[in-house]
Design a protein around this nucleic acid. Structure first.
Lengths: 340, 340
DNA sequence: TTAAAACTTGCAATCGTTTGCGCATTAATG
DNA sequence: CATTAATGCGCAAACGATTGCAAGTTTTAA
């Protein structure tokens, strides 16, 4: 194990040239002769030289790095987006530092500061579900570091945003259930503090209205969308005065819980109960019955986020004071939980 | 948007003290009076100072960062490990740079160099399935950067390794099938170039032998474990001379494909065919029937990897020339695909 | 009153690269 | 042969933080 790290200074010594020449040779500068470049590269190879990106970033005030904050990488949707962002940015020669907020606003803020300390040139964020104060993100922008939100975007905070067409997704899902002849379509949504759940709720209501189906408050429930919460909601719904003949759930975990509940209660799906989820995660085609769900195209969302970031950083887009909002399409994937 | 970034120099100017005092005040040095610290921190707050970790890392030759290379973050198992590694390292004040090799040995090597350029203090890797040359990882170690492999570990390359008890996992799975009365237990494994698939194969054979059940070569197949490949293998198996009454698959995707195939062919599971998978991913309890699988405890594996790295870096462990190999336990999770 | 001790603070070098400017060498031109 | 242009290379100053050593100030004790 060496304890000496090789620098361009060592290379300069080795080839008997100045530091500047070595630096230029390594970066393939056009003022340097081919023979010199060859010599320098050979020496670099020989001595096991490794480029120090830290030093370069310091000198250039440019890190070629983008920061990423997500609630949890283990969520299928986010994992897909991350993969896509990273692969896209890699093409531009940019690296990514990925952080997890674990759905904690405090950790989210800490991670943001961490990314600043690493002098990232831009930050892409999907917020924790509990984040309500976004002022620290404004600080980032004021410091010249662009911030792009995706999926979990703030509702009342001016910023670049990329989100799915939640309204349409919910509208399509609900309309589909109506087409199947359902009258009492329940909705289990996430906290309405989150704009996406709000929009899905709006889409749900719009579809009902459009088809002149009365909105029934008793069969609409909101809470964090965990398996346990969903099972509780099912209890409530099926012990209530109005028994639903369909449930539109705002995520797949919840929809799968509904299926689980129906099995236990021997409620036939889709005959007596139809179910639609949201996100089209990798469990939807495995479940029994397979789950109808709304595809969000995480791959494209990631690509868009990465490309937008590059456009902003490379000043192709000079937004000034106005912010860009992109909406990615959705698609209803019909499976056996909603029709035969 | 400011175009000036605030440095400790600016703070020094603001409070009328030297740069060194400001630096020490910020890092809470005990030689600095409380009143000075307060003044400096106040100024930092006021001017919006942000610590430059790059400069510090350069000066200290210490980045407080660990690099991570995984095939793909969107694989359930890896996502879980990553989350765990990141949360554990965060407690030590360490950051993580996550890279994806996309199962490409070339990209893997590129990412390794990238991590070195960022002067990570250690590297945790789960190899691409195609990686056969590990010499560049030796270079890392020679440069003083410890490397820990997990899950996808090299078989013939001296290094720190953390892997599941594959042999036992397969042994348990196969034994369980035998207990259920199966005689013709097929095995669909991954490429034997990968040590983990090899060990699972060994465990499978050992269980057969132990129970005096003949090993039948015709019902053992190896290939990359994708859904399509698995369906092809099912075709082969069920058109062959010896029809299996059970299949032990080396991952869950394959096992789920078997279930899919059986449904199409109207083969009753578990009555006429029993199936066991590997990894216990989040689809296993959703499928119909639910899938018996081997749990690998990714959370613990991540914790172990992170803790081992910290021990090595902080020299609690001075391995010298010998390498550490850890084996994490496995557990067979019995579900409906293998028994009633 | 004075010296020693205790407490604060500052100087300046350093980490590894990059790059504007200037100098030297060679080739091309009149 | 003299002048200009082109080419190839080196000097030295940044980038922002840390830290050993030295020095200044205040407090305490004799």
């Amino acid at each position: 194990m060496k304890n000496t790290t090789i620098t361009i200074k060592d290379l300069a010594l080795e080839v008997g040239m100045s530091i500047s020449t070595v630096s230029r040779a390594l970066s393939n500068h056009h003022h340097i002769s081919e023979s010199t470049k060859a010599k320098v590269n050979e020496a670099a190879q020989k001595l096991g030289y490794r480029y120090n990106a830290l030093a370069a970033a310091l000198r250039n005030s440019k890190s070629n790095t983008i920061g990423l904050i997500v609630p949890r990488v283990s969520m299928f949707f986010h994992a897909a987006v991350i993969t896509s962002i990273q692969n896209t940015l890699h093409k531009y020669g940019y690296n990514v530092i990925i952080c997890q907020s674990n759905e904690s606003p405090e950790l989210e803020k800490e991670m943001l500061n961490l990314l600043h300390a690493s002098r990232v040139e831009g930050i892409i964020v999907s917020c924790s579900i509990k984040t309500e104060d976004f002022s620290h993100f404004s600080d980032s922008v004021n410091d010249g570091v662009p911030v792009i939100f995706y999926d979990r975007v703030p509702s009342n905070h001016p910023s670049h945003k990329i989100k799915g067409d939640e309204y349409t997704g919910a509208y399509l899902a609900t309309s589909h259930l109506i087409e199947q002849g359902c009258k009492n379509i329940a909705h289990i949504g996430g906290p309405l503090t989150s704009i996406q759940y709000k929009e899905r709720f709006e889409g749900y209501k719009a579809a009902l209205k459009k088809n002149s189906i009365p909105f029934i408050e008793e069969i609409v429930l909101f809470h964090e969308l965990t398996n346990e919460n969903a099972l509780n909601s099912c209890e409530k719904l099926f012990n209530g005065a109005i028994v639903p003949d369909a449930i539109f759930a705002s995520n797949d975990t919840t929809a799968l819980a509904v299926i689980q509940f129906a099995k236990k209660r021997h409620i036939a799906i889709p005959d007596h109960l139809k179910v639609v989820g949201y996100s089209n995660d990798n469990r939807t085609e495995i479940s029994n019955p397979t789950l109808t769900s709304v595809e969000q195209f995480p791959h494209e969302m990631g690509e868009q986020a990465a490309n937008l970031m590059m456009d902003i950083i490379k000043q192709k887009i000079v937004p000034g004071r106005n912010f860009i909002s992109l909406t990615t399409p959705v698609e209803l994937i019909k499976r056996n939980s909603s029709s035969n």
